Structures are given as C-alpha cells and as structure tokens.
Simulated scan of single mutants.
Amino acid sequence: MASSADLKIAMVAGESSGDLLASRLLSGLRPRLPEAEFYGIGGARMAQYGFNSLWPMEKLSVRGLFEVLAHYREIKGIQNSLRDRLLADRPAAFIGVDAPDFNFGLEAQLRPAGIPTMHFISPSIWAWRGGRIKKIAKAVSHMLVVFPFEEDIYRQAGIPVTYVGYPLAEVIPMAPDVAAARQSLGLSAEAKILTVMPGSRMSELKYNSVAFVQAAQLLLQREPDLHVIIAMAGSRQRAYFESLLNEAGLKDVRIQIIDGNSHTAIAAADAVLVASGTATLEVALFKKPMVIGYKMMRASWAVLRHMGYQPWVGLPNILAREFLVPELLQDAATPQRLAHAVWTQLTDENLRRTLQQRFTEMHQSLLRDTARASAEAVLKLIGRT
C-alpha cells in the first residue's frame, strides 16, 4: 500500500456526542493511515488522534428551529468557508459525523465535485422528516448506521450502507463499576445518588436547567440522604449553567457539578434525569433507570411536535418500541412531574430490576467492533483496502 503521508480526510462533528463517535472511527483509521492528515471541525476526543479542528466545534452546537436561525449567518459562513477549502484541497473523502443539517448541506456540494462523502450515524428519518432520504441519496456516497433496523431503510433507497454497531456499546462495560465511579467522585458507596444531565448545547441548558434543578431540589427535600450530581459537557457549559442557577436563586450544598466526566456520573447514579438525545442511550447502556425530559423554544415546539412518525423521542424507548422509561416534554416537564417520575425510578425495586434486564439485552444487541467496521468502510470508499 502506498504511504498515507499525502492523504487528507476531512471530517465534521458538531457536538460532544459526535466528537465521541468520530473518535471511535479515528481509533480504527489512525493505525491504518498513520501519516494521513485528518482535519475539519471536531472536538477534544478527535484531537487525541491528531485531528486538526479549523473552527471550534461549539460553533455548530445549536439545536431547535428558531435557535439555529439566530446563528444561521455565522454557521452558513463556516460551511461556505469549509466547502471552499475542501474543494481546493480535494481530500480523499469527507466524513460528516451526525450534525445532519450542516453536514448534508456540505456533502451535497462536495459529492458532485467528485469528493466521496460518507455520513456516520443516520438522522432519525424513521422518526420524522422521512422525505429527507431523497436528499441524502444525492449527498451521500456511503452511510454508516448504528442501529440494525436502519440498514434496510437505506438499501431500499439504493444508498450504500454499513451497519457498524453503536460505538459506545463497546466502550461502556456490560457491568459498570459503580463503587469505583462513586469513589472517584468522593461519594459514599451507600449514598442514594441522582445524576442530572440537562444537555450539552447552550440552547438545551437554557430551557432545561431550571426545571431539572428545581426537580432535584424537590427530591432533596423528600430524601435527606440523596446526593445530586450535575454533569456538564465542559467548562463553558458549566459557567453558563451556573449563571442560570444564580439568576434563579437555585443553590444547594448537596448538588455537585462536574465537568466532562459524564460516564462516571452516570455509572455512580441510582437514577438519571436526562435531556432527550444520544445521552439517553448512554444511560441505558449503563443500565440505569431514567426519566427523559426536554424543553425548547415554544415556537420550535409548536412546529416539531406535529412532525414525528412515532410516539417516542427517547432512543431507549424507540429501540424498545414502547415507553420503557418516562418521557416528559415541554409543558409536561414541570419540576413536580419530573420529581415524581424520578422518585419512582429511584424507589421501585421491581421496575429497577426489569430495566436492568431490558437494558442489558439492548446493550448486547448493539455490540459490534465499530472502530474496525467503520474504518474498513472508509478504506474501501477511498480505495485503500
């Protein structure tokens, strides 16, 4: 095989979950292409494999129809600048990791110019906006999917596809070490612990934080031995989160805020209050009872609430095809209702045993050697097998 020294591969991940997914792909690619240049937009985990991010990943971490509109000019400017750079560089491939609105728009401009495009993790076309698959067919040379049922959807649409498993199913142990997680956080092995995850995007923190923390305070009043951990995606999110709590006058000595260590926070927990998104599946892989909550700008909710194809929004419920865990969205996500739902997850031992069994089965169904499978798909795409 020829040297990889002159090989360039561009990638874009738009948020912390995409950074983690992309790092798994890079862990499989870097040993096979030791001298290749990987660049584009990404985060700290991708940087561990020598990835060069041309813009801060946080610039793309915006969610919600109207929230995106507020940042549209800046995001579109980044997309156009990156497009021009890639059309000049002619990388061997472009890999969009999640961030579908940004990446599909970019892929649709790169593929006609002869740059192979791969997209890692399918948007939820099986949940809403299914008509996007026609646009995907024009933009994407090859799709990598993380759920087994997604393969047939793309094959029927004539889009080359590879099922690579869910990357975190390999990373998260089948039996997490709860005692070690608690010890690393300075928590008692006997404590009752609630982990709160209000989201990684600033827009999610804006709408979820106050209700989530108020629910935690209600639970602290009900259970004197409860300890609350709040997991932040990073120092920037923590500073913003703390400013929201200060404005709302929400403080409690039994609330501990940690940065960038969400897996430890989940592993230590007896239950988790989590914002809808990929984090819900991470919680399921840790076999933890949970309540899924989510709030957004009211105008965005008015539009999005009518666009779903199925009754669930949380990934564990979608995979189970039932309301395995509670979902409290928008007006339903009041502190009182969130607290009541979490209390059940903390105290109903039969429910806790059932969830542990179901989540173990879910974990087993998602296990694959994702790094190897995704890397081999990229190598085949660029003719380096």
Rank of each mutant, 00 (worst) to 15 (best):
S4K: 13
D6F: 00
A10I: 14
A10R: 03
A13I: 15
A13E: 15
G14H: 13
S16L: 14
S23C: 10
P31G: 06
R32I: 01
L33M: 10
P34A: 09
E37D: 12
I41L: 03
A44R: 15
R45W: 10
M46D: 11
M46K: 10
A47W: 14
N52R: 12
K59L: 11
L60S: 02
V62I: 12
V62Y: 11
L65R: 00
E67C: 05
H71Q: 11
H71N: 04
Y72V: 03
E74G: 09
I78W: 02
N80I: 07
L86H: 06
A88T: 14
A93W: 08
A93K: 02
F94R: 00
G96P: 14
A99N: 04
P100K: 03
D101H: 04
D101K: 02
F102K: 00
G105L: 07
L106T: 11
E107M: 06
G114Q: 03
T117Q: 09
F120M: 01
I121V: 09
I125D: 02
R132G: 03
K134C: 13
I136N: 15
F149S: 14
I153V: 15
Y154S: 01
R155W: 09
A157S: 12
Y163D: 00
Y166H: 11
L168N: 04
A169K: 00
E170L: 08
D177P: 04
A179T: 15
A180N: 07
A180I: 06
A181Q: 00
R182F: 04
S188E: 03
E190N: 14
P198S: 13
G199M: 05
G199H: 01
S200P: 08
S203T: 12
S203F: 09
E204P: 05
Y207C: 07
N208E: 01
N208R: 05
S209V: 02
A216H: 05
L218Q: 12
L220S: 01
E223Y: 15
H227T: 08
G234K: 13
S235Y: 06
S243P: 04
L244V: 01
E247T: 08
A248L: 09
L250H: 06
R254T: 05
I255C: 14
I257Y: 10
G260K: 14
N261T: 11
S262P: 07
H263F: 13
T264M: 12
T264G: 14
A269H: 02
L273F: 02
V274K: 08
A275V: 09
T280E: 11
V283I: 06
A284R: 01
A284F: 00
V291H: 05
G293N: 05
G293M: 08
A302N: 04
H306Q: 11
M307Y: 05
Y309R: 09
Q310S: 10
P311F: 09
W312P: 01
E322F: 13
E322K: 04
P326H: 10
L328F: 08
A332I: 01
A332F: 06
A333F: 04
A333L: 07
T334L: 14
P335R: 02
P335T: 09
Q336H: 08
L338K: 08
L338I: 06
L338G: 07
H340M: 11
H340E: 15
T347G: 04
T347N: 05
E349K: 12
L355Q: 03
L355E: 14
Q356A: 15
Q357K: 15
R358Q: 15
Q364Y: 07
R368L: 14
D369G: 04
T370G: 01
T370D: 01
A371N: 14
S374Y: 06
V378M: 12
R384F: 00
T385A: 15
